[in-house]
C-alpha cells in the first residue's frame, strides 16, 4: 500500500476559488494525476488542489485561434473534430501518449506543466505557436510556450498561477507529419518525436516550414535554423537528406555531445528526412 502524504485536498468549484487557494498557500494542482501521483510516491507531504471541477475541458475555435482547456484529456483531444481539422498534429500527438488508461486521465495542461523533455504534445503545440493562459489573483498573463519551459521539468509558472488554457494559431499548411520513436508502440516514453508542417507551392518549392523536436534538445524546441534553410528551396530527396544532417548539427550545437549522441545522430537525421518526405506529400501522416 502506497500512502501519498496529502495534508490538504481542496476541490474548488470556480477559478476564483482556485486562485484564492493558490494565492494563500503552496498547492500542487492535480487533474488526471498520472504524473503528480507518481511524483508523490516518495512520501513528500503535499497540499493538492483538484482542478477537475473548473470546467477547463473546452475546445473552441475562432477566426485565428483554437483554444484548448488545460484539463482536456488526451483521449478527448485525439478524437476532437476541431483539433483534427485545425491543429491535427496536436490530436495525433495526444493519441500517442502512454496507453488508453493514461490518455483517459492525463491532460494536455499536465503534459505542459510537467515539462518533460520527452512530452509528446509540446512539440506538436509548438508548430502552432502555442501560447498559455495563466491565471492568478494578480490577473491574467499570457506566456509563449517556447519561452515557458526553462529547463527539464522547470517552467516560469509561479506557484500562485493556474494554467487555464492553451491558444494555438491556425496555420493552414499543405502537409503535416508527426513521428514518435520508441522501443514499442504502446506505453512508450518517447525516444524522440518530430513534428513537421510544410507549405508547398504549385512549383514544388517550400513556402514555409515549421519543425519541432522532442527529446533532442534540453526542452522541446522548434528548429528555426532548419526552417530557414528549407524556405524557398525546391523539393527534392537530396534537400531532405541535407535537412537531416543540419538537424544533427543543431542538436550537437544546443545539447552538446552526450552519451546518447552516437545513437541519436542517425536516428534524428532519418526521422527528419522521413517526416519532411511525408509532409511534402500533402496529407496528415504519422508513423
Amino acid at each position: 500500500m502506497t500512502m501519498i502524504r496529502v495534508t490538504a485536498y481542496e476541490n474548488p468549484k470556480s477559478i476564483e476559488e482556485a486562485t484564492t487557494f493558490l494565492a494563500k498557500d503552496t498547492y500542487v494542482p492535480i487533474a488526471g494525476g498520472t504524473d503528480v501521483i507518481l511524483e508523490l510516491r516518495n512520501g513528500m507531504p503535499v497540499k493538492l488542489l483538484d482542478i477537475n471541477n473548473l470546467k477547463l475541458n473546452h475546445v473552441t475555435s475562432n477566426k485565428d485561434n483554437i483554444e484548448i482547456g488545460a484539463a482536456c484529456t488526451h483521449t478527448q483531444l485525439a478524437s476532437n473534430p476541431i483539433v483534427s481539422q485545425f491543429v491535427p498534429l496536436v490530436g495525433i500527438a495526444a493519441g500517442k501518449v502512454g496507453s488508453k488508461q493514461i490518455r483517459n486521465r492525463g491532460t494536455i495542461g499536465g503534459n505542459i506543466v510537467n515539462a518533460s523533455p520527452c512530452a509528446d504534445t509540446i512539440p506538436a503545440l509548438l508548430i502552432y505557436d502555442a501560447e498559455l493562459v495563466l491565471l492568478s489573483k494578480k490577473g491574467r498573463r499570457i506566456a509563449r510556450l517556447d519561452e515557458f519551459i526553462t529547463s527539464p521539468y522547470a517552467t516560469i509558472k509561479r506557484n500562485d498561477e493556474l494554467l487555464h488554457s492553451i491558444i494555438c494559431k491556425k496555420n493552414n499548411k499543405t502537409g503535416y507529419s508527426y513521428l514518435k520513436l520508441g522501443r514499442r508502440q504502446a506505453v512508450n516514453i518517447s525516444r524522440m518525436t518530430i513534428s513537421v508542417a510544410l507549405d508547398i507551392d504549385d512549383d514544388n518549392a517550400v513556402i514555409d516550414a515549421c519543425i519541432s523536436a522532442g527529446s533532442v534538445f534540453p526542452v522541446p524546441s522548434r528548429m528555426k535554423d532548419l526552417e530557414k534553410f528549407l524556405r524557398g528551396e525546391k523539393i527534392k530527396p537530396k534537400l531532405f537528406k541535407e535537412a537531416g544532417k543540419l538537424a544533427v548539427d543543431l542538436m550537437i550545437k544546443h545539447s552538446g555531445y552526450r552519451w546518447s549522441t552516437p545513437y541519436k545522430e542517425p536516428v534524428l537525421a532519418g526521422l527528419i528526412e522521413r517526416a519532411l518526405m511525408q509532409a511534402s506529400k500533402g496529407i496528415v501522416q504519422d508513423n
Binding site: V6, Y9, T34, L48, D50, Q101, I102, N104, R105
Partner: peptide
C-alpha cells in the same frame, strides 16, 4: 490495476480515492 471509471479504463494506482 485497470478499473472502469464511468465506463472508461483507467489505472487505479494513479487516481486518488477522493477523485
Amino acid at each position: 490495476c485497470t478499473v472502469l471509471l464511468d465506463g472508461k479504463p483507467v489505472c487505479s494506482c494513479l487516481i486518488l480515492a477522493s477523485q
